[in-house]
């Protein structure tokens, strides 16, 4: 690990000032950053510890939504009664990720900003445009079983590994940001991540020194929420494919639907195409299959990951069928 200076900040103004220093990087839970620092993939010169900022609270909003502080632990958000009752898909997604130990440490903001688990990104002997811009992507011609099938480029086929972000995408979360000069702004989660294009090292629309202060969830949309994750092990493993859906029915007809997919792209992949194929259609398997086909219409396999296209379709069909079962389970 490269040497660095360290500073713990306890108010937002100090955080802004500290972030303006050369080579500064925020650390909160550190469960991903410290791993990458050990491998010298991340080499911050100045570590700004923001874990003790007063940003841990979860608060109800007057419009029926909720604001989650960026420093809240993954485990606290997953266990929060309001989240469990009104946004169960978020609780399910959080609980499907990592382990009990990691969820106790990892923050909400850090979860959004975690780096890809592409093995070539981690292997410093391999070429990687994300790690070292302008080299090459070893994954395109390599073992790319876990890689992206949507939104990728020839420069990078890495996926975003978060489960939480997939649920937040289906819930149309807004990310609240604070610049070093203390001005604030909000970005929709769908606009937060940058497509890799020819610059895969630029991953988000965060400005220099900008910090995630909270995530705002609008009031839950009508319908039943469900998160399903498919992976190589039953627990403590990243997704091969995951799906977050919210489906509302009127009798046999689907009135509205939200669909987001995980581990298929550089960001949680909201499928407006699948949603359009569900709205106003009967809640039957053929409708779900049409939606799954629509979601995967522009999908591209790279060889080892070809199976993900079919896996994503089947996972989506199954999850839609689960969520559309209004006779059992909760209707929100």
């Amino acid at each position: 690990m490269k040497p660095f200076t360290y500073e713990r900040v306890t108010d937002l103004r100090a955080a802004g000032a500290a972030a303006s220093r050369a080579g500064a990087k925020f650390v909160s839970g550190g469960t991903n950053l410290l791993d990458l620092m050990k491998l010298e993939i991340e080499q911050p010169m100045h570590l700004v510890d923001i874990s003790r900022l007063p940003l841990k609270q979860i608060e109800d909003l007057p419009n029926g939504g909720i604001r989650i502080g960026a420093q809240a632990a993954n485990s606290d958000v997953a266990a929060d009664h309001r989240v469990r009752a009104r946004y169960p898909v978020l609780s399910e997604a959080l609980l499907s990720g990592a382990s009990g130990q990691l969820r106790n440490k990892a923050s909400i903001g850090g979860n959004l900003l975690q780096r890809t688990r592409c093995s070539y990104f981690y292997d410093t002997a391999a070429q990687c445009n994300k790690r070292t811009p302008g080299t090459d992507c070893a994954a395109v011609q390599g073992v790319n079983r876990i890689h992206a099938i949507l939104g990728a480029s020839d420069a990078c086929i890495a996926t975003h590994p978060s489960d939480m972000a997939v649920a937040m995408s289906a819930l149309e979360a807004q990310i609240e940001l604070l610049e070093p000069n203390q001005s604030t702004r909000r970005v929709a989660i769908d606009d937060f991540y940058c497509p890799p294009g020819s610059t895969p090292h630029i991953e988000t629309t965060l400005r220099p020194g900008e910090m995630i202060t909270s995530v705002v969830l609008p009031p839950p949309p009508p319908g039943r929420q469900r998160y399903r994750k498919v992976r190589d092990r039953a627990s403590y493993e990243f997704a091969l494919v995951s799906v977050a859906v919210i489906v509302a029915r009127d009798g046999e007809t689907i009135t509205t639907a939200r669909v987001s997919l995980g581990a298929v792209a550089y960001k949680p992949w909201r499928s407006i195409e699948a949603e359009a194929a569900l709205k106003g259609r009967p809640a039957t398997l053929s409708t779900y299959q049409a939606a799954a086909d629509a979601a995967m219409r522009s999908a591209v396999g790279r060889g080892h990951n070809d199976f993900k296209i079919e896996l994503a379709k089947r996972t989506l069909c199954r999850t839609l069928a689960d969520a559309a079962q209004t006779s059992t389970g909760r209707q929100l």
């Binding site: 485990s75 997953a78 266990a79 469990r84 009752a85 169960p88 609780s91 399910e92 609980l95 499907s96 009990g100 130990q101 106790n104 627990s235 389970g329 909760r330």
Partner: peptide, 23 residues
């Protein structure tokens, strides 16, 4: 140590991925 932490999480009523209904 993990089991000690886990049992206090259960005592606090935290759900898990194995919990059928997280609500």
């Amino acid at each position: 140590c993990s089991a000690i932490g886990m049992l206090s999480e259960v005592k606090a009523g935290w759900p898990s991925h194995a919990t059928a209904d997280v609500s």
